[in-house]
Structure formats: C-alpha cells, structure tokens
C-alpha cells in the first residue's frame, strides 16, 4: 500500500499539559482508521496536528499531499459552521482554494447532494438540527475534495436515524478517513484498522476485529464498561 502520512515521534504540549507523547503512526492511501480512546486521550489534538493547525514536536511526513488537501470536521458543528447560509458555508472552502465560480458551484452541489442536503442552500446553519448541522459540517469539507478526511466524533450526540445517515456518508467516502471516537460499537461498520490512544500515548493498533475483541485492552483504556448496577442487582 502507498503511504499517505507518516507520523514520527509526535508530541504536543499545551503549557504544562502533555496532550500527545511520542506518537508514531502511518496512514496509507485509501485506508479508514478509527482513533479510539477515552475523553482527554488526545484524539482531537492528533487530528489537529495532522491538519497542521497546532504546533508540535516530532515529524509529520506528507506523501503526495499537503496539509491543505486534508479536510477536518470538528466535533462541535457550531464551531465548523460560521457563514450565514448553508450554501456560503459549503462554498467557503472551495472559494478559498481559488476555484472558478462554475467549479465552486458544481463542488457545492455535489457536496450537498452527497450529504442529502439539496434544498438547504439558503437555510441558516445555526437554525438546523444537530444531525443536519453535522451533515453540513461534512459537506463543507467534502466540497474541498480532500485526499484525507479527519472526522472528530462524527456520531456523538445524534439520534439513531441521524447516526445511520452520517455512517452511510462516511462509508461512501472514497478517500482515506481518520475517525476519532470513543463509540467503539459502530467502528466495525466504518473502519478497517483501529488505533487505541490513552493519555497521549498509542497503546495499541491493529485490525478492527482484533482490537475490539480484546476486552482487557478496552477495559484498561476505559472503552468498555462492566455491566452496570442494574444488571448486578438482578
């Protein structure tokens, strides 16, 4: 497989807090990877470092792509969406890429159609439901035609129907995808490989089945819970 990104000895520090510690990871072209870990594991930080949004120590080598060709969808859609209309928000990236008007229009149309948002063009993003906002967030990145998608908790806080819609969109993504999540149950439907991150350190990585069947590893990294108090009583 062709290498897309190679992360060597990556460390990120926010003042006295170490968010990532000596992370090594290789992403191959066309690969779909799940980054799992408990809250505060460093998942979002890793995505932002790959996109080049934060300062880091170590090395990130890009093979045949540049950070501009990486699209990141933030966890909170209210952070991702800032333009007055859905159309303007989706067109924001392509316009910044310097594309011609016709190209921008076709990219926006394709992105909206891929995410089932045709007819939403004139709506205000901040008036949409959470599921719709999430879809618009993905469309904003989709329109830029990235080589690698970085999705930060794309399924969090959504109702089952919206989850299914977003999952379908992710499954249809033709390019490499990195999904940061702590919702491991849904991963077998989305990714081929899983990287377990805890306290900024890569604890394990491997095939999705191999990792998800390792109950000890999941419990140790707060990704699997013992039966709750109700079950214990019965």
């Amino acid at each position: 497989m062709e290498k897309l990104i190679e992360i060597k000895n990556l460390s990120v520090r926010f003042e006295e807090v170490v968010a990532l510690k000596h992370v090594n990871l290789t992403i191959y072209r066309g690969e779909k990877i799940g980054i799992v870990g408990p809250n505060g594991a460093g998942k979002s930080t890793l995505l932002m470092a790959i996109k080049g949004l934060i300062d880091f120590e170590g090395e990130i080598l890009y093979y045949g792509i540049s950070p501009e060709e990486i699209g990141i969808v933030f966890q909170n859609p209210d952070v991702q969406l800032f333009m007055p209309t859905v159309f303007d928000d989706v067109a924001f990236g392509p316009l910044n890429q310097g594309l011609k008007r016709e190209k921008v229009l076709s990219r926006v149309k394709k992105a909206l159609s891929s995410t089932g948002l045709i007819g939403y063009e004139k709506r205000s993003p901040h008036h949409l439901s959470e599921g719709e906002k999430k879809k618009v967030s993905i469309a904003t990145v989709f329109a830029m035609g990235p080589e690698l998608y970085l999705l930060d908790e794309p399924l969090i806080g959504l109702d089952p129907a919206s989850r299914l819609e977003i999952m379908k969109i992710i499954c249809d993504m033709p390019k490499s995808v990195l999904i940061a999540t702590h919702e491991i149950d849904l991963l077998p439907n989305l990714v081929d490989k899983v990287v377990v991150l805890n306290s900024g350190i890569v604890v394990a990585d491997g095939g999705v089945d191999e990792i998800l069947q390792d109950t000890d590893l999941l419990i140790k990294n707060k990704l699997y819970f013992e039966p709750g108090c109700r079950e214990k009583k019965s």
Partner: peptide
C-alpha cells in the same frame, strides 16, 4: 475554535 475551523478551510 471557530478561527481554527476557518483556518482549516483556507
């Protein structure tokens, strides 16, 4: 965070 998101889109 919004500024970071804008920066991420060029």
């Amino acid at each position: 965070k919004i500024y970071l998101s804008m920066k991420a889109r060029g």
